[in-house]
């Protein structure tokens, strides 16, 4: 279970989805593990615009990560063409600046390489707990919540 994934999860109880309290789910008793995933700057830059930054900061904070920037890094997705713009801005390099590099590496580690192996995710609206076992989160609801 990756940290990036948490940004795309909420409570499975239908009535909770409209409540802002159900997102993000909150971690309890989380055991983390670092995996090794090849750093892919383009992938990360393209995915970042889809990340809810406030939710990510809450999740990271709960798991003890303190390196998340206060603001989402301002990156133009590499796939976005600028052909519409007749004035070509000088492009120094397609790679991020050196100052960006560390931020990006840290985000890669947090979002993609950090796995929650064991623990619980709790809905802030209804309090239901979803268990994570051996890295797999289980969202099947008990009958009284369906």
């Amino acid at each position: 279970m990756k940290i990036l994934t948490v940004n795309f999860l909420t409570c499975a109880v239908k009535a909770c989805k409209s409540s802002p309290l159900s997102f993000p789910l909150h971690f309890q008793d989380a055991e983390l593990e670092q995996s090794d995933i090849e750093y892919n700057a383009a992938f990360l830059r393209n995915i970042l615009p889809r990340v809810d930054w406030e939710a990510l900061k809450i999740t990271a904070n709960e798991l003890g990560f303190t390196t998340v920037p206060i603001e989402k890094p301002d990156l133009t997705p590499t796939s976005t063409a600028t052909d519409k713009n007749p004035v070509r801005l000088p492009i120094n390099t397609s790679e991020p600046q050196a100052t960006d590099e560390k931020t990006m590496r840290d985000l890669h580690t947090l979002l993609l390489e950090t796995e929650v192996r064991e623990g619980k995710m709790v809905c802030g609206n209804c309090g239901h707990e979803y268990k994570i076992k051996e890295g797999i989160a289980n969202f099947l609801l008990p009958s009284h919540l369906v």
Binding site: T10, F43, Y130, N138
Partner: peptide, 24 residues
């Protein structure tokens, strides 16, 4: 779940644990 960098979870398709109006 072996396929990276994605995530696989156990869920029911009638009660999906995903936010509304979010996915591409």
């Amino acid at each position: 779940s072996q396929h990276r960098p994605h995530t696989s979870i156990v869920a029911d398709n009638l009660n999906l644990p995903h936010p509304s109006s979010t996915f591409d």
